[in-house]
Each structure stands twice: as structure tokens, then as C-alpha cells.
Design a protein around this nucleic acid. Sequence first.
DNA 1: CGATTGACGTACG
DNA 2: TCGTACGCCAATC
Length: 121
Amino acid sequence: MPTSNTLQDHNEEVSFFDMVYQVVRLIPEGRVTSYGAIGSYLGAARSARMVGWAMNNAHHLDPPVPAHRVVNRAGQLTGRAHFNPPERMQELLEAEGVNVTEHQIDHFDTVFWDPSVELSL
DNA sequence: CGATTGACGTACG
DNA sequence: TCGTACGCCAATC
């Protein structure tokens, strides 16, 4: 029996946070996805904010989560400020073959990786 | 303990 | 069609 005796007895799957981490780790190199896409894949399209918030926790996770492959719906590296250093996010993306200009991913529609599509749910 | 924020996105006016 | 408001769940103040 789980340690937590929360009100949610319907915990059939892991927490939303954990699911986010799992999906982010499934992102292949050279591909990126958006917070909303992950949230939508998890069945909560409106919880895009939560996905980003989960990334904050991702920094102390093991193994580390490739948060640099997660950007907003516009393809902008909005979360770069939370990296160390912030420019590290762009460097990591370029190292995987993803070109970034002015914190904006080039050909975002091409490198975009939609979990609900690639995972063929 | 209660209110606000937070790496966004969708819905509504 | 464009602009504004709300929602998601958890953590922080």
C-alpha cells in the first residue's frame, strides 16, 4: 500500500508530474516539443503551465530531464532563463542539430515532436 | 492556513 | 479577427 492516503483513490497512474518527466525523456535528439503538447498527450491541454512548473522540479531529478527540448507553442526558448547558464539551452539544442535564432527555433514545425502523434496514441 | 505565482495554452467576448 | 480572462496542480510567500 502506498504511503500516501490522499483523497485521490483513483491514482491508477503516476502523478501528472511524473508523467511529464517520462514524456520529456522520450523526446528524441534533434526534436523538440511544447508544454501544451505534453499536457494534451496527458489529457490535460490546459495544464501547460504545470508542465513548465514540473520542469522546475526536473533540475533535481535523477536521471536529469532534457528540459531544453521543451519550449512553448511558438517555438521560443521561454525557459532559457532557468538554465545554467541560460544560454545553455540553446547550446544543447544546437548540439543536437536544432538551430536557434534569437531564442526562436528554426523550422520549429519540422523539428517539432508531438507525443500524441509520434507515440501513435 | 490562505492567497499568489509559475518555463503556457485554450476559451470566450 | 484581436484582446482579455481563466484554468491546470503544486510550491512558495
